[in-house]
């Protein structure tokens, strides 16, 4: 059994695996997304919660752009039918010169990432406006003071409250 494991490990081309591909970018985006979730869950400060949201949105954008670069390439059958680039565009010239590694003809993933970026920036700007409004009222940005909607009639909450 160990010999089989060793032989299987030896058969893997580690040099080729180290070259960054779609999996590498997806794993990186996943890790950044998880870190964002952890910051949102663990952060007692409202500003850190918004930072966690930023991390999550950036991970989403990395996914879109990586998928667009590696999947939505000129070699795929889908894009050979639908192309928006004219023959005289600079992309065809660059592709003929062999300059780029990624020759995608339909950057829809980038458009999606652009829209996510814009809406994310709007959302975060609104969040910081709300944080300022909360600070003006409560003089703190701690999440534990935001208990206006907390019900005092719930017996489970009374048992677990601990004076918080």
């Amino acid at each position: 059994m160990p010999n089989e494991i060793i032989s299987s490990l030896n058969s893997i081309d580690w040099a080729a695996l180290a070259v960054p591909g779609l999996c590498h970018y997806l794993i990186l985006a996943l890790i950044i997304f998880v870190i964002g979730i952890m910051i949102m869950v663990a952060g007692g400060n409202l500003i850190k919660i918004v930072i966690g949201l930023e991390f999550m949105l950036n991970a989403i954008c990395i996914n879109f752009i990586a998928a667009n670069s590696f999947i939505n390439s000129a070699n795929s059958a889908i894009n050979q039918e639908n192309t928006i680039v004219s023959a005289n565009s600079s992309l065809s010239q660059a592709a003929s010169l062999g300059v780029m590694n990624f020759t995608f003809l339909n950057p829809e993933g980038q458009v999606a990432a652009f829209i996510v970026t814009v809406i994310g920036v709007i959302n975060i700007a609104a969040c910081f406006g709300l944080i300022c409004a909360i600070y003006y009222k409560n003089k703190k940005v701690d999440t534990r003071i935001l208990d206006g909607l907390k019900s005092n009639d719930c017996p489970e909450l009374e048992e677990c409250s601990d004076g918080v």
Binding site: C61, N101, F102
Partner: peptide
């Protein structure tokens, strides 16, 4: 990373 993926505008 976006530069590496060829998305210079983004």
């Amino acid at each position: 990373l976006y530069f590496l993926l060829g998305a210079s505008f983004l």
